[in-house]
Amino acid sequence: PSSGIEKPTVKRFESYKRDSQLPQAIGELRILVDYRAQSIILPIFGRPVPFHISTLKNASKNDEGNFVYLRLNFVSPGQIGGKKDELPFEDPNAQFIRSFTFRSSNNSRMSQVFKDIQDMKKAATKRETERKEFAD
């Protein structure tokens, strides 16, 4: 149901409501991809910290010597290449995490994590595009 001119609304999302919803695998202190919660869980100084796929802008992976580096770029104000029609920020005056870079010596696992993150992002972007087309 449309109410005529629609104001841009902030799309609300939440990875988890309760600690008990976090997957058991957080105990492994590794980067986890949780499709069910549409979230990536990052081990930040031991603490499992979820980030919803809606906050992710893109990811990149680089091999250097014995290590593989995974960089996650998040959506934040004032970014180069930021689209005008992007969702408004719930709190534009807040501080934003722009990126996290992780280092690992397990190349094959990181490649899988990277692929899982990209697949989840692609699927989320597709759903969002369909939602917008439907709303028009």
């Binding site: 580096y69 501080q95 934003f96 995490i97 990126s99 992780f102 280092r103």
Partner: peptide
Amino acid sequence: SAQVDELVEMRLYVP
């Protein structure tokens, strides 16, 4: 350490 994936950098947007 149990940390396999280690955080090496964080970038923060500060208005």
